[in-house]
Amino acid sequence: MGDQTMSARIRTRQVGDGTKRYIVLYRRGGRYFPTESLGTFRRLRDAQQRRDLVSGWLAQGINPKAALAELQKPPATIRTFGEWGELSRASRVDLDERTMKNVNSHLLRLNETFAGTDPFDHTPDDWQQWVAANTDLKPSSLKRYLATGKLVLDYAGVDPNPARDPRVKLPPIRRTEPTPPDANQFLAILEHAPRARRLALVMIEQTAMTVGELEQLEWQDVDIAESRFRLRRSTVKAQIRSRARWVQVPNWLMDELVAACPPDDRTPIRRVFPGFTPDVAKAVIARACKAAGIPHFHPHDLRHRRISLWHGQGVPARELAARAGHAKASMSLDTYSHVMPLDEAPEVRLAECLVGTP
């Protein structure tokens, strides 16, 4: 009975120029339902196709107007992985300049494979093949590149995220314990480094500050009377193990710092070590090590050296963590304490290096 009350038909109408128009009409129920139109056509064949389509929808209990509107919707815009990567990067207002630079490098490598692809079509096998094709990267670097890919897919709303699938395996990361420079090696680095950068290198080695902390240090943070630096929360690297703190500076080294900058130049917001960035520090030490003919060291090795010396000199674990800016003493002991000669570089030799030949 229901099929008899629902119907679709074609009505022919002649217009002023003598041509015909074919109107598709339908009713979704008995005579109490209004007659509705679903299109006017110039050709009968087109009207017949629309009528048959409406009849099928009516037989299934579907509202023809709603169904046709759905069909006529423009296709959804499909963004590629490359486009999602740009959107994801633009949203990362939480990243500093250095981290953003790394993200840009990651995206360049990822886009070599995935730029024009639809992330919703990705499979775990696609990402495992990408890992296998990029083993020229160090395992630790490969892990960071993959992490950026995961975040792009998360931002696109891909769920489940194929890059997070447990079947995507990374090469094992084999960590070797850092070997900080001994006193003679550190003096050799200073002797072959530009004189303008030596004070910053000595400051890291004597205080265990990171290059990032030293880079952000301003004269308003220097307490000359108490021979110490204030590391504010805004200048401390945003990690759980880091905390705002005072850093004690040896008196003789504070004297060298004060002598290197005239009083009129010590404006509150002036950087104490202008231009001393992580990249600059890395390049300075690399060139100095090569010129001195000693093993290659990294700026962070100077921090490792100082914390190891403090530990070997009997500084209690809690105080060691406070000096290093670690929330847990285990971090200082497990990561930064190394078996090495407990040889302090003589203050006289360090001072000579600071004023020595450029």
Rank of each mutant, 00 (worst) to 15 (best):
T5K: 10
S7T: 08
R9S: 11
T12Y: 00
V24M: 03
R27D: 01
E36Q: 15
R43V: 12
L44N: 10
Q49Y: 00
R50K: 15
G56T: 15
P64E: 11
L68D: 05
A76K: 15
G82K: 11
G82L: 11
S88H: 15
L108T: 14
L110N: 02
T117L: 12
A132D: 14
D136T: 09
L137Y: 03
K138H: 11
S140Y: 03
Y145S: 04
L153Q: 11
D159H: 12
N161G: 07
R174G: 08
P178D: 00
L187A: 05
E191N: 00
H192K: 13
L199V: 00
A200K: 03
T210N: 08
V211T: 09
I224T: 12
L231S: 08
R233V: 06
S234P: 00
I240W: 07
A244T: 05
W246P: 01
Q248P: 00
W252E: 06
M254R: 08
L257F: 02
P268C: 10
R270W: 05
V280Y: 09
K282L: 14
I294F: 07
I294R: 03
R318W: 11
T335C: 02
V339G: 00
P341R: 04
P346Y: 03
E347I: 14
R349V: 11
R349T: 12
P358L: 03
